[in-house]
């Protein structure tokens, strides 16, 4: 895929399960390169208030794993769709059945924020045989040796958690985030998420060396307010901003 990439997270089933496939199609047209489709969980421990609220709305609207895969399959877009969700939801369905359902509904990768590589053996085996990527996360406080291990285990891309804490919009990109991106070993695409809510922030992480910017809570927030046009506008502006930022990355020195 042509870099830099814009990865857009939405919570499946928010505001309703019926709305999800169309939302995915429109996001793809607006410039999203990958859709991260969240499966709502009752206990989303890595998420801040925005995504927690979205998960609660979606569950109340009837979203469950069966409906999730139907919605994913119905959202027939040319860009990759990636699953994001908690391990218990996968465990409850059975690992093999879950990855099979991913593959048959066009989901090409999985992000499981509460599954460290040490615990991931069985899911790795299942996802490999189904041809689905298992994408691991690294955080700014991940020590270097561990970071190398995670990088070696991840497939598809590496998800860099931009800062300490949970998901949610923030007003600044810290120097710590820049340093973090810089110390991630090369050899795998690096996507940066957590706290990116504006085109300016997305551009900053791309300039700092990231291959992809992930935006989540800002989109979920607009969906919660019913501002779908504004959401598409945000995605267009983000795509533009990161494309511009990529050009700054290797400036031609006269």
């Amino acid at each position: 895929m042509k870099k830099p990439l814009l990865i857009v997270y939405i919570c499946a089933g928010d505001p309703t399960p019926e709305a999800t496939p169309d939302l995915v199609r429109r996001l793809a047209r607006a410039g999203a390169d990958i859709i991260e489709l969240g499966l709502p969980h009752s206990d989303p421990v890595a998420d801040g208030p925005t995504i927690q609220a979205a998960a609660q709305r979606a569950i109340a609207a009837g979203m469950n794993t069966d409906i999730y895969f139907k919605a994913a399959a119905e959202a027939d877009v040319d860009i990759p769709k990636v699953f994001m969700g908690y391990y218990n939801m996968i465990y409850a369905r059975g690992l093999e059945r879950f990855v099979r359902d991913c593959a048959s509904s066009g989901i090409t990768g999985m992000i499981v924020p509460d599954l460290p590589p040490e615990e991931a053996g069985p899911l790795q085996e299942a996802s490999r045989s189904a041809g689905v990527d298992l994408i691991f996360l690294a955080a700014p406080n991940t020590p270097q040796e561990r970071l190398e291990m995670i990088r070696a285990q991840t497939s598809g891309f590496l998800y860099l958690v931009a800062r300490a804490g949970v998901t949610g919009a923030r007003s600044d990109i810290l120097q710590g985030t820049r340093d973090f991106i810089a110390r991630v070993p090369q050899g795998v695409p690096r996507a940066v998420g957590f706290g990116i809510s504006t085109p300016k922030q997305a551009a900053e992480v791309i300039r700092a060396g990231a291959d992809a910017a992930i935006v989540g809570s800002a989109c979920v927030d607009l969906i919660a307010r019913g501002e779908i046009e504004q959401l598409m506008q945000l995605v267009r502006e983000m795509k533009e901003a990161i494309t511009e930022a990529e050009k700054d990355k290797n400036p031609i020195v006269c």
Binding site: A138, T142, P143, R146, V161, A164
Partner: peptide, 12 residues
């Protein structure tokens, strides 16, 4: 048992 926690919590 085990340690099913987000990576940010793994070092602590």
């Amino acid at each position: 048992g085990g340690r099913f926690v987000p990576e940010i919590l793994m070092p602590p």
